[in-house]
Design a protein around this nucleic acid. Structure first.
Lengths: 370, 370
DNA sequence: CAATTTAATGCAAACGTTTGCATTTCTCGG
DNA sequence: CCGAGAAATGCAAACGTTTGCATTAAATTG
């Protein structure tokens, strides 16, 4: 009859069933005043004909896309990746799609992405900005249309918008104070570009911890650069090019911490004995390295969930400005590991994991319990 | 005049300029028979009015979304993450958007994702399947509509479709043979669920290498399970619960290799002296662990680029079935590291990187060279 | 059983583009 | 200055939905 390649539409269903398109549409959407019988007929026929809704058509008509946009610097970094995963899975529960985009830390790309996402008429936007984004006006379009935006992690300073971020000040403070408590007197801080709020705040925390503990803040003990492995390595060379060596290093991210550790190992500087190291983000790599590295966990799961919650909230209720422009702080936690004198951790198989039993006895044991 | 909150459309531009909508549309799309002057006027006005194209409307009309769908098991794993990054950045050059989705290795979710991506009318689809996907019929819809699909990495066996994958057989072979060359006589293989092509092929490579080198293949020297850390740990316990210990372990993924290494270190089994270890994927973590782990690189960049190339190819030319259903093999490379007796690697700052010079001499040296 | 309420269905416009074809406006040679 | 051809613009339909309102069918009531 009808060719296989032509897409079935709601009109085709209507014709086949001698109903109007509106009835079919409503039936498919479970509209209350369509009789149960009709709904059944329609749905059955839809299945039979291989009908697939056209989201673009619906979106055009409704002016909503059921899609959220996400812009992160890069998806291959632990923290953004973790957040993206959570956001995506959470959004799915609400029937929303996610378009994940990477700015590659390029402002130019971020601007372009904002535009394409706007063109796609996303119903909401979550952004972790570029290292160098200080002007956020490319997001104005969304504000003008009252499209919910949530910034997280790398967030703007003076751009009125919903912000969800970790407690970077406290994190910087705790990491530094922890080093002090472990006996460090001369703590180097490796920071990132100060255009990025994260790094300024962690730096502020570092300063505060020094001050509180009556340690001098020395400008030449703080280094700034983009946090690549190569830069970190060069900084390590600089740090250890002349005595006195620092006895503690607080790196504002884990890639840097790991690289510093590698440098130390290679050059016979013992960690934690000669020099203690703390990183930031609790990247899983900090755990598998030797010695494992103390780091600050940012609860990516919590943050991701809060981002989604905020977006859904903003989408449903047209919220008062107060909420649209508020800030939420997600707590952080210092995870002590060997690099500052902590204990190595254990891998234990969580209970209830399905693994073929090692021997008959084990199998019996399980059966008994049941 | 007009309220700020209403979205501007090409109709508004047309009215403002006393032109027809068609002219405006064509002007914006640089259609050849619109005069240069008009194009200029239109574009200027569009900017002035803050016009933003509505991709959904255009998509509906054209029956194309300028969007590609990507389904991967999880974005937080190294290999899929690397591939996603490449695909996204490459697609951007072609003016395509990417919707990244994670199946979380659940077939159910994969099916749902296929449906939503179809609803979004993506112009093409790239998929790395679930561990457990053996029936691929949920992708039939795309085939029926002639929507390009490319499977990569975790690919179907008997589902006629474009496939781009690494040379897993060769990878398995090389890894195993490398262990043999390094003197291993009793090599354990830790594999994944055999529903997944990757693992069957790597296993086949393992067998082949044993056979070629006159080593016996023993069933109880091969372990199968989902490749989580916990499972790997339990397998390690099993492996080392009784003598003789193996002198080589080929793990079919790096997470497993790393976990095995940790177990060995904890239990005083020296790597590589007592037991050598090889992994798969060349996850960056293999490099930072002590000892660093030999692994098989899969050239994610190449693979990602090829995926995009194939998709663009398929989208532009309506390709003959031969191409639509072909297989491309991306080469692999064994990276030898300490876990099999290789050398540790160096971190060297790539030439031309901008870092403040450590001292005056260095600066001069650079200048001289120039 | 007529009148009225309630439930179910249908009509037609609208969403913002694009595009085949028709029409108008130029340009230029004769 | 006419007319032909080219260049530029306009008209209107179409893409596949959703939805306010009108209409019809069914159920309820006095």
């Amino acid at each position: 009859m009808s060719s296989l390649r032509s897409e079935k539409t709601i009109v085709d269903i209507a014709e086949e069933l001698e109903l109007s398109v509106s009835t079919v549409s409503r039936a498919l959407n479970d509209h209350p005043n369509i009789s149960a019988k009709t709904k059944e007929r329609v749905k059955k026929m839809a299945r039979k004909m291989g009908y697939r809704p056209n989201a673009m058509a619906a979106g055009l008509r409704n002016n909503k896309s059921k899609t959220i946009g996400l812009i992160v610097p890069r998806i291959s970094m632990f923290f953004p990746a973790a957040i993206s995963t959570i956001i995506q899975n959470k959004l799915q529960e609400f029937g929303y799609n996610l378009i994940i985009c990477q700015s590659n830390d390029s402002l130019q790309q971020e601007i372009e992405l904002a535009n394409t996402l706007y063109s796609a008429r996303v119903d909401g936007l979550a952004v972790s900005a570029t290292l160098y984004t200080t002007d956020f006006s490319h997001f104005d379009i969304f504000k003008q249309q009252n499209t919910p935006i949530v910034f997280f992690d790398r967030t703007p300073k003076d751009y009125n918008v919903k912000v969800i971020k970790g407690d970077d000040f406290l994190g910087g403070f705790k990491a530094t104070e922890h080093l002090v408590e472990k006996g460090c007197k001369d703590i180097v801080h490796i920071s990132g570009p100060l255009t990025c709020n994260l790094y300024t705040e962690r730096l502020a925390g570092y300063k505060e911890a020094l001050q509180k503990n009556r340690l001098p803040y020395k400008k030449n003990r703080v280094f700034f650069h983009e946090l690549t492995r190569e830069n970190a390595w060069q900084t390590a060379e600089k740090i250890f090019s002349q005595k006195p060596y620092p006895d503690g290093i607080f790196a504002t991210n884990d890639t840097t911490a790991i690289t510093i550790l590698e440098y130390c190992r290679k050059h016979g500087i013992r960690v934690p004995e000669d020099c203690k190291i703390a990183g930031y983000s609790n990247d899983p790599r900090t755990e598998i390295v030797t010695p494992s590295i103390t780091s600050v966990d940012q609860y990516p799961t919590t943050m991701g969930e809060r981002i989604v919650a905020a977006l859904m909230d903003l989408i449903q209720a047209r919220h008062p400005a107060a909420y649209r422009h508020s800030q939420e702080i997600v707590p952080i936690q210092l995870i002590e590991r060997e690099s500052t004198g902590g204990m190595p951790r254990e891998i234990v198989a969580p209970a209830g994991i399905k693994v073929p039993a090692a021997n008959g006895a084990a199998v019996k044991a399980v059966k008994k319990k049941k």
